[in-house]
């Protein structure tokens, strides 16, 4: 609280100190939670509003970035944590934090109602899932038509020379989507086969992006014919009128959960618990459903418009524990193979 007071005070530097004081005292009325998230920005206001309808006395201060960055930030702040709660970060990342001893064990009220897949196996659990987001390929029919690119139906298709320079994918170092792609390929094709596949894919990649949604947005606007992204983003762009076909590669698709956890050492544990309780309610899950076809609360999910059919069946049997504990090694390997080779065209 004290830190916050200073922050507000310095805001008023040079301007009216009176206004600054007023701000500070106004802020004192509510508890403020610093919440780290990788949820799409457009959803954050909605989430905060829904929560504040129930708990008007707790104010959420969002810190949003790509999955990789939020994860790296949390790890970097390990000894001096800033976040109170993480709401909406890849489960693999939260498992990593759990391994590092950074998460608080807490069984939120009603956790037993959730699908078991969506809850940490420890008791009490360290994290609870919200929804699943699933890899898929955005294929721009107009641009592909111009370049005579056939519709790819599998991951292996994307390594064919015909797609050279036509594929965009997220950089797994910064993007959670990028990481789940890479980890799923390593699980699908085995360690050796996976890297071999990526070597082939790398030949066709036009550029790697910072965020996971950008490849699909670029496919939607025709900047690239094919973007490796996630299903929800594709559905959304298609709903906006983009000439997209959303492909579910036949080998199966990687996926990850968005999950929630309390950071150990938070000074606002009570408020943090209230927030986490809220995140697993039926209402919250209904809210997640507007963007995600698969949510943690059974029986809530309604179909999302333009969401690719059969994608739930294609979700691989993801070994999150493996992905989490090998995350660092995989990323380093990826970096040395593809990132330093600058002029990959």
């Amino acid at each position: 609280m004290k830190k916050h007071l200073f922050a507000k005070l310095s805001l008023g530097l040079g301007a009216a100190a009176v206004a600054g004081l007023a701000l500070a005292s106004a802020a004192n009325a509510a508890t403020e939670l610093t919440v780290y998230t990788a949820v799409e920005a457009e959803d954050l206001k909605k989430y905060a509003k829904a929560f504040n309808d129930v708990h008007p006395d707790i104010e959420i201060k969002w810190v949003r970035d790509s999955t990789g960055i939020v994860t790296a930030k949390l790890l970097a702040e390990k000894n001096n944590p800033v976040a109170d709660v993480v709401w909406g970060l890849a489960a693999t990342s939260l498992m990593l934090l759990k391994e590092e001893g950074m998460t608080e064990a807490y069984a939120p009220q009603g956790v037993e109602k959730l699908d078991k897949k969506f809850v940490d196996s420890a008791n009490p659990p360290h994290w609870t899932g919200m929804d699943a987001w699933i890899a898929s390929v955005c294929y721009n029919t107009v641009e592909a038509g111009k370049k005579n690119l056939p519709l790819p139906t599998s991951w292996q298709d994307l390594t064919k020379p015909v797609y050279k320079g036509s594929v965009v994918m997220p950089n797994p170092n910064s993007s959670g989507t990028g990481f789940l792609d890479v980890s799923s390929w390593l699980q699908l094709f085995g360690e050796e086969g996976g890297w071999q596949f990526m070597d082939g894919l790398h030949q066709n990649i036009a550029w790697y992006t910072h965020s996971g949604s950008k490849p699909c947005k670029q496919a939607a606007s025709g900047e690239t014919p094919i973007g490796i992204s996630f299903a929800f983003r594709g559905a959304k762009s298609k709903n906006d009128g983009a000439p997209l076909t959303i492909v579910v590669p036949s080998e199966g698709v990687g996926w990850d959960m968005e999950a929630t956890s309390i950071i150990k050492g938070t000074k606002n544990l009570e408020a943090a618990k209230k927030l986490v309780d809220f995140t697993i309610t039926k209402g919250a899950n209904m809210m997640y459903n507007s963007g995600y076809a698969v949510v943690a609360y059974p029986g809530v999910a309604k179909p999302v418009k333009n969401f690719p059919e059969g994608i739930t069946e294609a979700m691989i049997d993801n070994n999150f524990e493996w992905a989490a504990s090998n995350r660092k090694r995989i990323l380093a390997e990826w970096q040395s193979r593809y990132d330093s080779k600058s002029e990959a065209k």
Binding site: N171, N173, W207, E343
Partner: peptide, 21 residues
């Protein structure tokens, strides 16, 4: 820049992307 790495973007990648200060 696409995939054309430069020193300035390297700093950004190291710090923001990997938090490798």
């Amino acid at each position: 820049g696409g995939n054309y790495n430069m020193l300035a973007t390297d700093v950004y990648k190291q710090v923001i992307g990997q938090q490798n200060f």
